[in-house]
Design a protein around this nucleic acid. Structure first.
Lengths: 190, 190
DNA sequence: ATACTATGATATACTATGTATCATAAAGGG
DNA sequence: CCCTTTATGATACATAGTATATCATAGTAT
């Protein structure tokens, strides 16, 4: 999937940036497509040449963030200790809190969160071996791991990040990672 | 808050029933207010005399279900063993899967799920004593407990309930209840 | 019985979506 | 560099849905 025409790339970038800026200003629901095209300085009809509706544009913009975070978590250093993973997550969120707040904010559509959970679960399943004989199916454990992580991030952001990323990493490990791994997966000793 | 006029109660009931039926048929987003009023056989303008928009009606309808479930969980038998609590939840969901599917379905607005988490967290905090010195704050643990439970219910419903309520109760206990209680709360020995 | 209030029906203004069309400008391949 | 292709801008327009106002009527409470 390589976009050949520079004009297309330019237009899509402008639309995504405009959307994120507008969400931060007035919330997702209040935004009209005309708002987006005016902010991006793009013809109104041009929007529909790229996306069917607002949601499609939002998902496209979100994929950039998702891939970035997945790269951090599952990149070269996949065998890292689980304790550090939590700190990585919450440090990333703190560094990009504006965008994350926008994407996971309570105003966004539920379908986006579902999409993020889906993407995350696939990666968890790919990176861990299920423990044979466990009453907890790997598919459920993966879903739980990702959904709980997002819920924890949402709580942290909505409460204006009252604890440090290190502290959140410890909470994350104790409440989510440790129980899930010991319940359903073979713990990687690396 | 007692509704005196029978006409009001009648109208609101008809609107709520119509909305739930329509969500099951075509999904929340596709529903117009005219759809609702026509199905309920109520004048179009009358809708706005009770609710500002669709979301307000949905939240009102959801509160009925929330209160019912909270009554089951925190009613007379609050001191029950945690293992049984999971079965109670998933049995209730199975018995009311149509409505729960509608309310927690991926098409519904995110704000509704947030609302449910809020209501549930308050109850968890009210029913449990925080463990002193734990790195996991009680507020976070309560949020985690409820948010994870909803995520697990969503997974179960969206996958057409492939495991029995008993099995789900065990998963629930192992993945969510046990870790959360031991991490952040004083375990009730009753 | 009477005063009150909710409803139905209707009209209307307004906003937003989505499509069609055509001239123009920019891009890419040779 | 030329030529073909394609994306964009501008505009007009059809459609759908929201939200409010008004008034006669019917149901409700006390």
């Amino acid at each position: 999937m390589h976009v050949r025409d520079r004009r297309v790339k330019r237009t899509q970038n402008l639309l995504a940036q405009a959307l994120l800026a507008l969400i931060a200003e007035k919330g997702y629901d209040a935004i009209t497509i005309r708002d987006i095209t005016e902010r991006a300085d793009i013809g109104y009809a041009t929007f529909f040449r790229h996306y069917r509706d607002k949601d499609e544009l939002l998902r496209d913009a979100a994929d950039v963030v998702i891939n970035e975070l997945l790269e951090i978590l599952f990149g070269q250093q996949s065998g890292k200790e689980p304790a550090a993973v939590g700190q990585l997550i919450f440090r990333y969120v703190a560094d990009h809190s504006e965008v994350v707040r926008v994407l996971l904010g309570s105003r966004g559509p539920a379908s986006l969160v579902q999409h993020v959970i889906q993407r995350g679960s696939e990666n968890v399943l790919r990176q861990n071996k299920p423990r044979p004989g466990s009453p907890v199916p790997a598919e459920i454990a993966a879903h739980h791991l990702v959904a709980s992580s997002i819920a924890l991030i949402q709580w942290w952001i909505e409460h204006d990040m009252p604890y440090s990323p290190e502290h959140m990493g410890e909470i994350y490990r104790q409440l989510i990672v440790q129980p899930t791994l010991t319940s359903a997966f073979i713990i990687d000793p690396a």
